[in-house]
Amino acid sequence: MSGQRDFMQKIFWGASTLVTIVYAIIPVVWIISLSFKRNVDLSDNRFFPQRITLENYYAIFQDAQFPAALYNSLAIGLISTALAVILATFAAYAIVRLRFPGKNLVLASSLAIAMFPPISIIGPLFNMWRTIGLFDTWAGLILPYMTLTLPLAIWTLSAFFREVPWDLEKAARVDGATPFQAFRLVIVPLAAPGIFTAAILVFIFAWNDFLFAISLTSTNNARTVPAAIAFFTGSSRFEQPTGSIAAASVVVTAPMIALVLLFQKRIVAGLTAGAVKG
């Protein structure tokens, strides 16, 4: 009886898992397949390419704008991430551990920023950036990315800081650490999984953003990959740039997938095991 139920359960879980995976993976496989198709085969109504070719990849890297965009994306993403995470670490720690007036206001307003539809600030931002000369610069993108991801980073990190036993900080202070040493040597290493999580979230936001990138840039100076893809043209006016777009998408998606797979373990590990009794 129970054997039969176990069997039914297995079937059920197996089937649901399969459906979920297929649902999630088909668009990705499709894009990858497109990127390897020859341009003439693009509309051949087949899921898999008849012949695998790298011509789309050659094409995008020969075009000057894609490598420039990749460089911009990487640099802007990394700088935004670094700034947002450093600021958020301090802010989250202060919110969790210190008592100061207006603490709840900071939390509430950071949440309000997170709720803000970015599209509503694009217009004013465009005009401001043009006036003060931030239009089409790295800083012009880093600023909004950092600002808009800070709330998320602060909320993520404060959740992790709350998990760190306060006794550890006290112990460090008694052991001879200054408040900053206690923070740097004990609290931050323990909140590392949280910091990685926050960093990945911020980086993904900056890396994937299209709205700011398309509105606040105009040349290869600061245009990031998602925006650059929109400017792809076919090799002739009669040709769709589908293949190049697919290849570019694969190139920008791959690092994301690698990043998540790489740090997944760190995020899940939970370094605090064994800190206190248990």
Partner: peptide, 28 residues
């Protein structure tokens, strides 16, 4: 507290979980 040269043992022990026993003892 860092200048009082007193050592404290906490109810929760407060061992630094990211350091091994030697590093915990070396820390101060």
């Amino acid at each position: 507290p860092k200048d009082r040269n007193m050592a404290m043992v906490f109810q929760s022990y407060a061992l630094y979980p990211h350091m091994n026993v030697r590093q915990n003892m070396e820390f101060p």
